[in-house]
């Protein structure tokens, strides 16, 4: 089976966000594989081990993303591809990303594409479904279980807490939700092996893409931080009285009851 994983490098969830000169500052930030994409990498490895084939991990970004690709290789992926847009693309959006990936997949024989259900930075969740549409393959988002039995694919999908049982077929794109699996940590031998696994770097030229063909259809005009939340009042006195006071405050001061 030819399995592909779409991966994004994101800020560590521990990071505080700092805005300087109207941009999110990434000066001293730590980066990780987008947590939802980790489920995708893990699931790809599990499915390959079950059905055979090969797992290729793809990211779009800059040189630094190699680190996250190596981590995916250390987890057990077979190959990695970095589509380096640093020089060509200034402000891509989800449309740009999906179009670039469409070009990449043009000559590939795809069985299964996995992605995270959302990236924790921009959180649009658009790229997976957009790409499936461009490739004209079915997609299922926010999956929590995946079972491939020859030609029949059975999926459990999280729908706001309920579970939908879905039947579909390959080729297919899925986006992964928490609960799908428990991503493994790279083992030491895994890390050693990852160093020798192929990591290809492509540019838009290699994919026959003109910058204009993938120009963004949206633009960010401002980035700002929410007003800092002031610490409120910690109540005092007998517990019973505190509870009475709290209810009175919620009713009369905050007016939320």
């Amino acid at each position: 089976m030819n399995i592909y994983v779409l991966l994004k490098r994101t800020f560590d969830t521990e990071e505080k966000i700092v805005v300087s000169n109207g941009q999110i500052s990434d000066d001293s930030a730590e980066f990780i594989i987008n947590p939802y994409d980790e489920y995708a990498v893990e699931e790809a490895i599990v499915q390959r081990d079950k059905h055979g084939g090969e797992v290729t991990v793809i990211t779009i970004g800059k040189e630094e993303s190699e680190k996250q690709l190596r981590t995916a290789l250390a987890m057990g992926a077979d190959k990695a591809v970095l589509i380096n847009t640093e020089e060509d693309l200034e402000d891509g959006d989800q449309y740009s990303t999906a179009k670039i990936l469409e070009a990449y997949f043009e000559d590939k024989d795809v069985d299964l594409i996995l992605a995270g259900n959302v990236a924790i930075d921009e959180a649009s969740g658009q790229v997976g479904p957009r790409l499936a549409e461009l490739l004209n393959i079915p997609y299922v988002t926010t999956i929590t279980s995946l079972n491939i039995d020859d030609k029949v694919v059975s999926i459990e999908k999280d729908v706001e807490g309920d579970v939908e049982v879905i039947e579909t077929s390959l080729p297919l794109l899925v986006t992964c939700q928490q609960g799908l699996n428990e991503p493994r940590y790279p083992s030491l031998p895994g890390i050693m092996k990852a160093k020798k696994k192929p990591l290809d770097e492509l540019e838009l030229d290699d994919l026959d893409i003109d910058e204009e063909d993938v120009e963004a259809k949206t633009r960010t005009i401002e980035i700002f931080l929410p007003p800092e939340k002031q610490a409120g009042r910690v109540l005092n006195g007998e517990l019973k009285d505190q509870v009475t006071e709290l209810v009175s405050l919620l009713k009369n001061e905050a007016k939320v009851l």
Binding site: I17, T218, T220, E222, I223, L225
Partner: peptide, 21 residues
């Protein structure tokens, strides 16, 4: 038409416009 949306799960916000379509 300017939209405001949270990024980084609400740690920050962006204002965004559609430029095509």
């Amino acid at each position: 038409i300017v939209f405001t949306r949270p990024i980084y799960s609400g740690k920050a916000f962006e204002k965004k416009i559609i430029t095509d379509g």
